[in-house]
């Protein structure tokens, strides 16, 4: 197997409050292979965005990384100086934030933002950058690229802005694209356009992708592999088909049942997981999911189940659901 584009080992982040450290991410471990799309799922507050932010080293106090190695194509990002890390962001890792306005400068034209980004990272003349910017606007499916090039962000719709943010994240030809809920704020029809666009660009450029979402439908269509987050930890990883067809962790199964969907005979069903995910500083001992788990036994309340390896199908659970054969 070739070297992973991204290799994250034992990543931990804490939140400091009144002189005490509370875990926000705890021992997060995963790989992303070249060209692979890894989906990160889990409910709100599970630590998905935090993982992305820790990878690009944008944590600010009271948040702090306490352990972990992060390697991009073999190079240790966690050991880079702040200055060298700035070059990695934007050039080697593109980031799409959930709110498009986070990535856009409200007072600069779209064209200026695209050409600035490209010229910062690629050896291009002004004219070449302009040409490429127009090509990117066409590529992300915007009608009338010269008009959009001259436009300010507020002159565009939410869907148009999200396309531009994707162009901005990809225009410096990064090795890895981190997309944080790129379609959550959009409705079904614009979402399907956006996912199609992301897929086309991914197929064209071969960029590996970390796709953060809490929508399992998006995962089913886009991800090759999935990491499920719960209370700051990865509790299951699997190839997408396996995860959806035969989840091992009761939490993953619960998340799927909580998504309204028709069952085999067409009747709609939804089943909520009782209770709520524990907040920061309120983690129970043992498995963080045990207070909400029907299968929990004594050991689950005492010892934290490990996640063995980051490659195959694995769950941090002492009593996983039986793996059924999926074709």
């Amino acid at each position: 197997m070739s070297e992973p584009v991204l290799k994250v080992r034992d990543l931990s982040v804490v939140l400091e409050r009144n002189g005490r450290d509370f875990p926000v991410l705890d021992g997060v471990t995963f790989d992303i292979a070249p060209g692979e799309v890894l989906g990160l799922v889990g409910e709100s507050g599970a630590g998905k965005s935090m993982t992305g932010i820790a990878i690009i080293d944008l944590l600010v106090p009271p948040l702090r990384r306490t352990s972990g190695t992060i390697a991009l194509s073999g190079e240790r990002l966690d050991q880079l100086s702040a200055k060298r890390m700035r070059r990695v962001r934007g050039k080697r890792i593109g980031f799409v934030f959930q709110d498009p306005m986070t990535s856009l400068n409200p007072v600069l034209s779209i064209g200026r933002q695209l050409t600035d980004t490209m010229r910062r990272h690629l050896p291009l003349t002004r004219g070449e950058a302009r040409e490429r910017a127009i090509a990117w606007l066409t590529r992300v499916g915007l009608a009338n690229p010269p008009r959009v090039f001259a436009a300010a962000p507020h002159e565009l719709s939410g869907g148009q802005r999200q396309r531009i943010v994707i162009a901005l994240a990809l225009c410096a030809e990064p090795d890895l694209l981190i997309a944080d809920e790129p379609t959550t704020a959009l409705d079904v029809s614009v979402q399907a356009h956006m996912l199609t666009l992301l897929r086309e660009l991914h197929e064209e450029t071969g960029t590996a992708m970390m796709l953060i979402t809490h929508d399992l439908g998006v995962i089913a269509k886009m991800a090759d592999r999935v990491a499920v987050f719960y209370a700051g930890r990865v509790i299951e990883t699997a190839p997408t088909g396996r995860l959806i067809g035969a989840p091992l962790h009761p939490y993953t199964a619960g998340l799927m049942q909580a998504t309204p969907a028709p069952d085999a005979d067409g009747a709609m069903r939804v089943r909520a997981i009782p209770g709520a995910m524990p907040g920061i500083g309120a983690l129970p001992p043992g498995c963080a999911f045990h207070p909400r788990c029907e299968r929990a036994q004594a050991i689950c309340r005492e010892e934290r189940p490990p996640l063995a390896d980051a490659g195959g199908h694995d769950a941090a659970c002492y009593f996983p659901l039986v793996e059924e054969v999926v074709s």
């Binding site: 079904v188 029809s189 356009h193 897929r199 089913a220 269509k221």
Partner: peptide, 24 residues
């Protein structure tokens, strides 16, 4: 019909996406 098809379902074996053609 197009609106129903545009929503991604949970079937990971059929990865096709069905955006509604054109813009609002």
């Amino acid at each position: 019909r197009l609106l129903i098809d545009a929503a991604p379902d949970l079937d990971a074996t059929d990865r096709s996406l069905h955006p509604i053609p054109g813009d609002l």
